[in-house]
Design a protein around this nucleic acid. Structure first.
Length: 437
RNA sequence: GUGGGCGUAGCCCAGUGGUCUAAGGCGCCAGGUUGUGGCCCUGGAGAUCGAGGGUUCAAAUCCCUCCGCUCACCCCA
């Protein structure tokens, strides 16, 4: 029983897991470059009021999931529970409205939420997100959705479903909410406890209920897409058309709502698995690997000028979870190719020097440590995946030579001490080339 | 916050009251003659059997409490 353990809901990402992380983060960054999104990093913590204002006072995140504390200067601080609000804050703080619009940025960062951990859910998790601020063009919605979708494709995930909806704007949503409330008020008898609360506090969330008895009410409920104002309907129509232009397969889901208050118009979510029943959510939301939408009012809410924006975020742990479920293999992280072994104390000085010479020549080298038998050293070279071993033996040393052993072919030859880097290079090159192709 | 499952070495796990001073596999370390890997063989290190309390002549094994892990609900990525 170890004395110390990683806090609940957190995890160590050990070297053996790193290939997954490197793989997906490299894919993400390559894609962002392709779409012209630039990296932004914001602080791990912000003033609490930024999040309570943006995410919404009544949301679960703000009510019970934030890591909040008062610092020595009596400031209320919160560990970032989502990525959009800090980006908006930075946009305002640094006058990014003066940059060419839209401002396209992405982040790869830790997110903190105090929740009960379960499969694919952690108190600290990593998100990859993109935000495009300053433009209301529906083509930008399509661009953002295309970007996430291409991201999933580029990491190799299959069988995903893109759920798409529009939740309108402050002009048209009240009409819908009224109709929704009216629909529900006639059936309060069969409502679950949660939905009774939702009816009062956050009616949109009624559509989110998984309770079987509430499902029927949901399916007979009015659809928000029938209540959109002219502008919202037109915007949504164009988003759909642009997505069709670029062959992004989406599933219209009029019951899709999102958990943060700042969304307006376009909302979307990506879930693993295909739907059997079109338009009907069959998977629990917990399996969602990514989501996002428009938040045209958020920046104004935070004190800026009216600035439309759209973005997405996706959970990296959940992506890795699905990569493993789908048996997708990721490329290994290359090991240093040369293992430097030696016998005796005199040999060790040359070993230290040769390892340094190789590294300075750009050749990865692992230096054997401690006093171990040659057998043990070569065994380790093998386990570490080195393609070549340099053996500094006392006999050869006296003649100014060292042994260069090819661990893949099992052949070795003597080469002069001087110019060892040149001797090593060619076989390494060919090996690496074959490993890449 | 609610409910289910589970807690034996770094990992996988056997063992359900005395023969357990806890077995096996992987991994680690060392040997298999004198300076050479991948296979094989041998040996070694590594476990207060999650913690505390109780029942019993006797507990890894039964009971209680706590802690932790895990899965699901809620909600979110």
């Amino acid at each position: 029983m170890p004395l110390y353990k990683a806090p609940r809901g957190t995890q160590d990402i050990l070297p053996s897991e790193q290939p997954y992380w490197r793989f997906i983060t490299q894919k993400a960054e390559a894609l962002c470059q392709l779409y012209g999104y630039k990296r932004i990093d914001t602080p791990v913590f912000e003033e609490t009021r930024l999040f309570s204002r943006s995410i919404g006072e009544g949301t679960d995140i703000v009510e019970k999931e934030m890591y909040t504390f008062t610092d020595q200067g009596k400031t209320m601080i919160t560990l970032r529970p989502e990525g959009t609000a800090p980006v908006c804050r930075a946009y305002l703080e640094h006058g990014l409205h003066n940059a060419p619009q839209p401002v396209r940025v992405y982040y790869l960062t830790s997110i903190f939420r105090y929740e009960r951990p379960q499969s694919g859910r952690y108190r600290q998790h990593q998100q990859f997100g993109c935000e495009a601020l300053g433009v209301a063009d529906p083509a930008l919605d399509a661009e953002i959705i295309d970007l996430v979708w291409q991201f999933y494709i580029s990491v190799g995930l299959r069988d995903l479903t893109l759920h798409l909806n529009s939740i309108g704007c402050p002009d048209c949503r009240p009409n819908y909410l009224q109709a929704l409330k009216h629909h529900y008020s006639q059936q309060t008898g069969v409502l679950c406890q949660d939905c009774k609360v939702r009816l009062e506090r956050n009616p949109l969330r009624l559509l989110d209920c998984k309770n079987p008895s509430c499902q029927e009410i949901i399916h007979s409920a009015p659809k928000i897409t029938d209540f959109l104002c002219e502008q919202c309907a037109e915007h949504f129509q164009q988003v759909k058309e642009y997505l069709q232009d670029i062959d992004i397969p989406f599933t219209l889901n009029p019951y899709l709502v999102r958990g943060l208050d700042y969304y307006a118009r376009t909302v979307f979510e990506v879930q693993p698995g295909r739907l059997t029943d079109v338009g009907q959510p069959t998977l629990s939301q917990q399996s969602t690997i990514g989501g996002g939408g428009r938040y045209d009012l958020l920046i104004e809410e935070l004190g800026g000028n009216a600035t439309p924006a759209v973005g997405f975020a996706t959970g990296l742990e959940r992506i890795i979870l699905n990569l493993k479920k789908q048996n997708i293999v990721v490329p290994p992280i290359p090991e240093p190719m040369v293992y430097v072994a030696y016998t005796g104390e005199e040999g060790k000085h040359d070993a230290v020097k040769i390892a340094a010479v190789l590294r300075r020549a750009g050749i990865g080298a692992i230096l054997s440590m401690g006093k171990r038998s040659l057998k043990a050293q070569l065994k380790q070279a093998n386990v570490l995946g080195a393609s070549q071993a340099i053996i500094i033996g006392e006999d050869e040393q006296r003649r100014g030579m060292i042994v260069l052993r090819d661990l893949i072919e099992g052949k070795q030859r003597e080469v002069p001490y001087e110019g060892i880097a040149e001797a090593v290079l060619p076989p390494i090159d060919s090996y690496q080339r074959s490993a890449i192709s």
